[in-house]
Design a protein around this nucleic acid. Structure first.
Lengths: 211, 211
DNA sequence: AATTAAATAGTGGTTTACCACTATTTTCTA
DNA sequence: TAGAAAATAGTGGTAAACCACTATTTAATT
């Protein structure tokens, strides 16, 4: 029997595209299409697909949160992440929470089909470019194997306010903190996200949808 | 005879999605699919479509540049911009260079078809949310009607290096400029993009695909 | 109950960004 | 070819970011 595939993407165009690509594939059947995280969590209670093709950027929740929740509650559903971002930080994050594959949106038809089949069989699949990027990343960070790239509640709050163009002093006032505390959070962010300055913080945050 | 439509998008999934949506539409025929700006400029020399569905983010050139070039050289090709960004700055920019419509990627099938038909007939089409946003924007900026939001060559170079996390001094060294000159460009950027600091520069640049 | 991570606040300092000006030369374009 | 826009460089200054530390209190987790 064919692989039951659910698609979650807020762009109907993308969902349609995948459907049309898979129309000719006899071994894959698209059983559900969701356009946001809430709908997905609701629908998956009733009907669990074999493979979930999950868009990274949804309007209502972040990719890692959603993926973690599904991996935990429905371990039989294999998640294949669909994203247009090749930011390695994000790729690692999704794999860490238990996703079985990470597919870039510029993939062609056969790659997509192959990825779905591989993930369904319990294998792992990465878009070819990502393999190389991940390896390079490992060489760069031999040491930092255990380093947690998860931001704390406060760090996320501070990061959001930085993106909103506030100064440390303004952030301190808003959150009722000392200027020093905000500075500390800011420097933690620089270290955790491995960037050099504010520009890097904003870039990574926006590219990875951290906030 | 049907409307000849060319699609330019670096994601095959999206291009496929549009094709599948239009498969049932008798009055539209997809004649060409391009995955980057260079290919588009090459192909359009030979075959000019009635409507060009143009993705905002292409790997090799920016949306405004590409659109401006096509409007100038092929005035009969009506451009319908396809973007996932509702940043009003960007919408205005594309309309200003002569695009006939701006369609968000979360549009449904009928909206897409309607947009193509409208643009083909010489009309203008905006995704519904954008109408409201544009009106709000006009009220906010009654004054700044004439303000040019076009970045100069040097400003773009500096902005790119800022995004790459370089300091003003590093940028000066790279471009063989005085530190003062770089500072001036940076402040011009702050004014032109109407942001308060580096965070704002990076945010706007990434969200609008300026660089 | 003990350990760990997170959040808080501080000292003391350097570097960088930001701002308002003026001014010359170069390049574009009407 | 005159005028405008862009690119260049400067003065002089303030505000903010960045950095390496130490240290206490408050959650969270085993």
């Amino acid at each position: 029997m064919p692989i039951k595939l659910a698609i979650t993407d807020d762009h109907p165009i993308v969902a349609n595209g995948i459907c049309s690509i898979l129309r000719d594939a006899a071994n894959v059947e698209v059983t559900d299409i969701y356009t946001n995280g809430t709908a997905l969590l609701k629908g998956i209670k009733e009907r669990q697909p074999d493979v979930l093709l999950l868009d990274m950027h949804l309007p209502d929740m972040t990719g890692p949160e959603l993926a973690a929740s599904i991996v935990k509650n429905y371990p039989n559903v294999h998640i294949l992440v669909l994203s247009s971002s090749d930011v390695i930080f994000q790729v690692k994050k999704m794999l860490k929470v238990g996703c079985m594959g990470y597919l870039l949106k510029d993939s062609d038809d056969t790659t997509i089909l192959q990825a779905i089949e591989t993930v369904h069989k319990g294998g792992q699949f990465l878009s070819p470019v990502l393999n190389q990027l991940l390896i390079e990343d490992m060489f760069r960070n031999k040491k930092s194997e255990k380093k947690s790239t998860t931001l704390t509640r406060r760090e996320k709050e501070v990061l959001q306010l930085i993106i909103d163009e506030h100064t440390n002093q303004e952030i301190a006032d808003k959150l009722f903190l000392s200027l020093h505390t905000v500075e500390n959070h800011r420097i933690s962010l620089l270290h955790k996200l491995e960037v050099k300055n504010t520009a890097g913080l904003v870039k990574v945050a926006l590219q990875t949808g951290l906030v």
